[in-house]
Amino acid sequence: MTLMLSVPLTLSNFSCYSPVCIDSSHFIMSLAAEAFVSQIAEDQILLSDCASSLAVQAYLRMCNLPVQVSYRPNAEYMSPSGKVPFVHVGNQVVSELGPIVQFTKAKGHSLSDGLDDVQRAEMKAYMELVNNMLLTAELYIQWCDDNTAAEISRPRYSSPYSWPLNHILAYQKQWEVRRKMTAVGWAGKNLEQVYEDVSQCCQALSQRLGTQPYFFNKQPTELDALVFGHLFTILTTRLTSDELSEKVKSYSNLLAFCRRIEQSYFEDSQAGSSSRGYSKGPSLF
């Protein structure tokens, strides 16, 4: 059984993560995807997709599950829910973090078994907080801020396609996201208010985390993976203005939290693979 995580072409930030293909029955590491990833020249992935993909990667690594990341320009169209990332295991395809967590749980891998009922309720609530506010804010900044949409989102999103498909698909996506913003009541907000929302969300996460190493005691849960995915991506992605990352940077315990997870779950494999020709990409510190 091989877990394969498919995301669109990656940001340079993450293409460096060693794509490790491990046969989960034996936990044998192989590097089947090495050539594939290094060949990627064009960047397509956007902040929000990148964050979701990193969250799933972090989750699978926390579960000690083998994962081979593969980058496909048409990942969105391969996914059963139309959203990236998705994992491909045997003949099953599961997309998005929630269903993936359920799927791995059914296979006997779970990070939240040690929690009591109240803690589990709180964990789910905070995961929805991240989805409801951080993810929506990322989508808003990508597609509803005209500068970001024109300079970053549309060119990146349409990079694999040729004229006129590139324009059609990019504007279609933008139109879809804007309608979604109307449906969730964000259409009337301006950029300042969205940054303010991000700040409020980070404040809530920071309060909740406090001085603990992870959100619930000493063991990471899927909430830690999700928060790491979003915050780390926000911190390491360059947008038209760095106001978004500045908002996150003002919470020192969240910064330390990101660094902790990066070190424990990403740098080990990086170090192991660097000898095989991987260059280390930009990290947090």
């Binding site: 929805e128 309060q207 909740r208």
Partner: peptide, 14 residues
Amino acid sequence: GADTLAFVSLLEEK
């Protein structure tokens, strides 16, 4: 206060 924000999100999303 942080918990309030989180549980309101849970209600709205789920």
